[in-house]
Nucleic acid binder design. Sequence first.
DNA 1: CGGGAATTTGACACTCCTCAACACACGTGG
DNA 2: CCACGTGTGTTGAGGAGTGTCAAATTCCCG
Lengths: 253, 253
Amino acid sequence: MKAMLHAATSGAPDIRARGHCLDCAIRQHAVCSDCSAPELEFLTNLKTYRNYKPGERLLEMGERAPFMGTVVEGVASMSRILPDGRRQVVGLLFPGDLVGRPFSPVSPFDYVSVTDLRVCAFNRPQFEAALRDTPALEQRLLEMTLDELDSAREWMVLLGRKSAQEKLCSFMVMAAQRALRLERRRPMDGILIELPLTREDMADFLGLTIETVSRQIGALKKSGVIELIDARHLLIPSWEALEEAAGGELAAA
Amino acid sequence: MKAMLHAATSGAPDIRARGHCLDCAIRQHAVCSDCSAPELEFLTNLKTYRNYKPGERLLEMGERAPFMGTVVEGVASMSRILPDGRRQVVGLLFPGDLVGRPFSPVSPFDYVSVTDLRVCAFNRPQFEAALRDTPALEQRLLEMTLDELDSAREWMVLLGRKSAQEKLCSFMVMAAQRALRLERRRPMDGILIELPLTREDMADFLGLTIETVSRQIGALKKSGVIELIDARHLLIPSWEALEEAAGGELAAA
DNA sequence: CGGGAATTTGACACTCCTCAACACACGTGG
DNA sequence: CCACGTGTGTTGAGGAGTGTCAAATTCCCG
């Protein structure tokens, strides 16, 4: 819970451009999914890739954000730290999700990589100009933003009203849904879930402490809702039982 | 009240069209703020006004939403109720705010009036067509949605990490900011705040119980951060002290 | 193998919830 | 006019669920 962001904003992440937008594996999930071939051609020439190690800060709350982009590989978090060090994660970014706040030069949250991460990045003014000039881009951004807003509000239900145990189950449901969607698969019994976050990140996402997270995972294991492979991998014998234990109401984000 | 919430969506609220968009007092805050005179002319002919008493449900979670609109007067809430009855308010709608989820025929949340309420309403398909055909409308909607997303995430920080007392103070700060913005005024010492919600709605918005809300308001009064006029009205001797007690980080929404 | 981080476990404290009773304002009808 | 019901808000006693602090354990990687 205490803010332990190890490295300062990295001055020069590993940057290199390669690959063409047409070949992008996650384009269908991204803001550029509805762009025409010529529009993609244009974007291809603007983009650069940025790679990060876990724990690096891509953008800092309250600071100028030099770029925007899309997660290509890995997971990142958006979070805020209160003056006394309490931290709340307000969103997880999976492949296809947008990094940065469009039309605001200053980032309203910290963006931090939680796994090895690759981001398809654009110079901010150029990206915003592209947004203004490309209806396909702007309409898709609107669509994505409306979906994110629904998700954020669902998470508010979790934070405000769910028990620690329900929070953990909801998180597992969400993590599984996000991972499966990328592979165009559906949840089912016996499925394997990877938890991409440390206990600390989970705690900060769920509004709990790491000790409570650890204990509730133990309780879920004992009650048979999950089977632990190791600290980061688990098996779901019954998807329905997991959803039941999550306290209901988790629409696919 | 319980009975009202559980009653079906009111079939025929008080509907009448009057007034012209050009004369609308809250247009500058609404989705139509950037529309040209001809565009407003078009919208004027589509709109109808709907009036509600406190506690009426405008739209129901999971049901077809026949209209969308803008709050003209009063306050409404968006909320979700878990299967076992726990309720979380995920947003408050002040004049200018949008009622309904664009591009989704089904409402993801309950919309309930919390005061006497007037809504400028549009038939959903017509409104969505107008959005698609009117860049000024769509761009403004994107802007508003991005702002709402920032606000929702700030509220997640409150729900996940703030104490009951900090939640109350944050709510007062937010309520004051929203009310003042409509009058183009700034927060200052000695200001009067109206709490438009019942203790129950406040509790459901803050992730607390009504008893805790009541007790914390009492504690704030005793410590001098607020002065109670009556149950719904209070005075802020020091705005800075209130923000301090709110635990920091509340950007104007 | 060694050292630090991540995770788990334990004992205890505290915030906030639960249940219950009470106070108050308001409207209705006898 | 007053008794009554209903919705709203306050107050009190006690307990459940999480947080806090401390230590043990496991994992990871050089």
